[in-house]
Simulated scan of single mutants.
Amino acid sequence: GKIAMKLDEEGSKILDVRLCNEDQDVLLVSAGGRAIRFPVGDVRVFASRNSTGVRGIRLKENDRLISMAILNHIDVTTDEARAYMKHANAMRRAAGLEEDDAVVSAPEDGEAGADVALSPERIAELGAAEEFVLTVAQDGLGKRSSAYDYRVMGRGNQGVAAHDMSKVKELAACFPVIDGDTVMAVTDGGQLIRFPVDTVRIAARATKGVRLIRLAEGEKVVSVVRIAESEDDASAEEDGGEASDAPNTPDAPEDEN
């Protein structure tokens, strides 16, 4: 093969490679629970593959990057995003789909906090474009958060909190999901659990979320992936049964907040 990137620092490595365009954003998340979202256009095009590139996120000492994702960009202010998320959660509560209204993170430094009124047309536009990000910590807690809760900012800083890290050392995974997705999590103790992402509560990015898998003492989640539904799984569901090799799905996740 060919050199894809010049790695100067000892021990550094390429984490991920994604196709993208100028109408999208980059989402970087660290094991220490920090996330930054910035426009693809903020990363200049380099003439040579053999270059070190530019800084996407500034990591604290001993922190490391665990994921990179590409999100669709939409022009929305922080105040509009907060107003929309509050409205969407109110609609879910009214439909009996949600019990907790904590879906919007508290303002951080540099964030606005004014209330704005959205027109029905704007609500519909934001709803059609909304994406969700699944975050899972090593202690088995996780949640879905609206991508609007990850505001767009300039690259190169420490970003915002992606998870409540008060009782956990590191995140295990963070990536976009859609309704109908299935997620599989594996622990260092050999446990495996497979569950529909729809069963994971929608919550603010700076919360702990719900328990997705119950761990033994000292055990931790080491891998979380989105898996595609196979033809065998689909056929089994149509027949009213389960695919013979499908791992067990859990009961509804337990709320830890």
Score class of each variant (00 low, 15 high):
K2P: 03
A4D: 04
M5N: 06
K6T: 10
E9M: 08
E10W: 05
D16E: 10
L19S: 14
C20H: 03
N21I: 03
E22P: 00
L28E: 06
G33N: 11
R34W: 11
V40R: 13
G41I: 09
F46D: 06
A47Y: 03
N50E: 15
G56E: 02
K60L: 10
E61Q: 14
E61R: 09
E61D: 15
D63G: 14
I70M: 00
H73D: 03
H73C: 02
I74K: 08
D75I: 13
V76D: 01
T77H: 01
K86C: 05
N89E: 07
A90F: 13
A94V: 02
L97D: 15
S105Y: 02
P107E: 09
P107I: 07
A112F: 05
A114L: 12
I123S: 02
A129T: 11
L141D: 11
L141V: 13
L141Q: 04
L141F: 10
V160G: 05
H163Q: 15
S166I: 01
V168L: 11
C174S: 15
V186F: 12
G189P: 12
Q191D: 15
I193G: 01
R201E: 13
T207N: 09
T207K: 07
G209P: 00
V210P: 01
R211Y: 03
A216M: 11
E217T: 15
G218V: 11
V222I: 11
V222L: 08
S223K: 08
E231R: 11
E231T: 10
E231G: 14
S235M: 12
E237C: 00
E238G: 00
G240N: 02
G241I: 08
E242H: 12
D251Y: 03
D255V: 14
E256Y: 08
